[in-house]
Amino acid sequence: MKQSIFTIERSRPLARDVVELRAHGDTSAITAPGQFVNIRLTGKFLRRPISVCNVAGDELTLIYKIVGGGTRQLAAMRPGQTLDLLTGLGNGYDLSPAGDSPVLLGGGVGTPPMFWLARELLARGKPVRIVLGFNTADEVFYVDELRALGADVTVTTVDGSRGVKGFVTDGLPQDYSYFYTCGPEPMLRAVFRATKTSGQLSFEERMGCGFGACMGCSCKTLTGYKRICKDGPVLRKEEIAWER
């Protein structure tokens, strides 16, 4: 973990209430896709945890949804303004068990971490299939960016207004070696049930500190109590205990 000041380069809307933020600063503590940063905002007491979408040199990309006062304030910030970030938080995805044909499943704003993960897997010579799930067509984002990386992207929408009608699990391919997913908990439960291989799931929880000190985001797993912020947010399918 590091505390550093980042300077905003660009902030642009991607879809309804979804914003892509690009900023540069010291990214050296960010070591794995699936990690997150914790952003301090003027006038807000707690930081806002946001997952890393991509890192390239000193450039950090974050994608977030405007859900309340904090994210609305962040969306109003302009290029040149600075952000106080804690970086390199959380464990991130472990790429080693991916096998020959991994599938990535992203739901809504669970999509962003799939970008860097896909890039890393493709760099290791693995074909990457991605299934993205949204409610409606106007929520869809990052399909072109993911395709430009060389990933095979399937889009699902609940109302059928774009791509396959249904949930992210309806876009799951027949065969795959391993899965990686990030999204809201009901989706994670569905993915857990629908997948036949092992895999890794990234969880969300209300956090206090984001670096393991306050025990605000603990969960029970089959391998003991874990802090979503420090021992997670990524858990292995085999260790998940749904009845918490």
């Binding site: 306050c214 605000g216 985001c217």
Partner: peptide, 14 residues
């Protein structure tokens, strides 16, 4: 059980 944390003006609840 979680959630265990809430934000407030100039503070938090745990």
């Amino acid at each position: 059980p979680t959630p265990r944390i809430a934000e407030c003006s100039a503070g938090m609840i745990n």
